[in-house]
Design a protein around this nucleic acid. Structure first.
Lengths: 239, 239
DNA sequence: GTAATAGTGTCTATAAGACACTATTGA
DNA sequence: TCAATAGTGTCTTATAGACACTATTAC
């Protein structure tokens, strides 16, 4: 397929790749981090599970395409959405040259309803530590990268709040951090640090449970946008 | 342009966007951070400066395309290259729908030679704090993002070494950090921290200058890959 | 009382920042 | 000698981590 390098003025003369948007959708289900996958009906990789996605339309931006996919799969709007990476190996789709712009979405616990599209035979949430591997295409790689990005961003952003309901206890928040980071955190240090950060707002609500009732808190959105906010747990991060 | 959502099986029936790879090429020239820009010959944005880039070929991966662009513009191979972000707003190119996968490249000081292609009337290095704005397309935005990524990654990676020659003094390294971070660093603290990090290897070489001669060091590549290496200067980063 | 969960206090080791000091060259 | 640049030492303060302790509920 050797050819003269096309200039920007004669786009239409040259063969074009297809562009898809794939969305790795995370949510917390039963206090465990899950990811939404769809099962493929058709060749190639029929029967295998895949990250939901689809072709981009010419009249929508990449992020609009990602939001559309997300809503088609989960019926959810207004979620946290972030571009992850663009995957473009020549052979990643056996049919055509397909370049995939991958996004990460965080869906609030319990907010989601799942729809099954006509392209996939099933749609299901999987715990991230028990995935139906191997996935279709290069989706194992995409998902692994999404998880690693999630872990590292958790340490210096308020991303964890995107997974929680409006009101939550501090120990629930700690539990999310432990889920995503995959390690135990010290309770006292967590209390200290989250309170010093000043990003939580106390509410008058109390939730009763088995032991001592727990205070509920709310995320202070206005503070999260402050320039200096960092909530770091470990020093050894590298994206 | 409403249409039925295409499935992965009938790619060819639907209109496709074009995909380009743009490479933001940084280098240190006279101890100052510069970026390589090309001046456009043709409509649109003729006369304006732009980030070098070009269309992707169907037989090369995204990174291969970026390396090819880089070599076409600078003649340089074996440089640090990292995918930055994919820009896909509908109206970013007035002629067609064009999706651009942007890369960052770091070219060693003094290694580069510039070539002028037939598409641009001029190619030139610009100091990052004195750019010929506005640039063509959405390239102001791409460049601003590239700079911010460079700044934040500098704090937790060994990226700065990619800009230095094989042998360098510790104060030269400090100078790069200051250039990219845009702030002064304490000399004593810099010496302490860089030495404790264990990523520099002393060489027997000494360079003479105006004042006291200075010891030259080498970057220990093997240590840079170690799992725990971090070289952080500030705590307030956010990508 | 005990089990269960929520929440606080405190000690210590380490790292960051400020900044003063010493060292080695050329003119 | 001084100017110029290279390099070291030390004090203070902020923070992370470990971990023991107290608090409030149901039974």
């Amino acid at each position: 397929m050797q050819e003269e390098r096309p200039t920007r003025s004669d786009i239409s003369k040259y063969p074009l790749p297809a562009v898809t948007v794939d969305v790795v959708i995370f949510s917390l289900i039963n206090r465990t981090l899950h990811v939404l996958l769809v099962q493929r009906k058709r060749w190639p990789f029929e029967g295998r599970w895949a990250i939901p996605g689809g072709f981009i339309r010419l009249d929508e931006s990449l992020e609009e395409a990602a939001r559309r996919e997300l809503e088609e799969e989960t019926g959810v709007r207004d979620v946290y959405l972030e571009q992850l990476y663009t995957f473009g190996d020549v052979q990643r789709d056996p049919r055509h040259r397909v370049i995939s712009v991958a996004y990460i979405a965080l869906v609030r616990a319990d907010a989601q309803t799942i729809r099954v599209s006509d392209e996939s035979s099933d749609v299901r949430w999987f715990p991230v530590d028990n995935l139906p591997t191997p996935l279709a295409f290069d989706h194992d790689q995409i998902l692994a990268y999404a998880l690693s990005r999630l872990r590292s961003k958790l340490e210096y952003t308020t991303l964890a709040f995107q997974l929680l309901p409006e009101l939550f206890s501090i120990l629930e928040l700690k539990h999310i951090y432990e889920q995503i980071l995959g390690e135990k955190l010290d309770k006292g240090n967590f209390y200290r640090k989250i309170k010093e950060a000043g990003i939580l707002e106390e509410t008058p609500y109390i939730r009763e449970g088995r032991g001592r009732p727990t205070r509920l808190w709310r995320f202070r959105r206005e503070r999260a946008g402050d320039k200096q906010f960092v909530f770091r747990w470990r020093e050894d991060r590298r994206d």
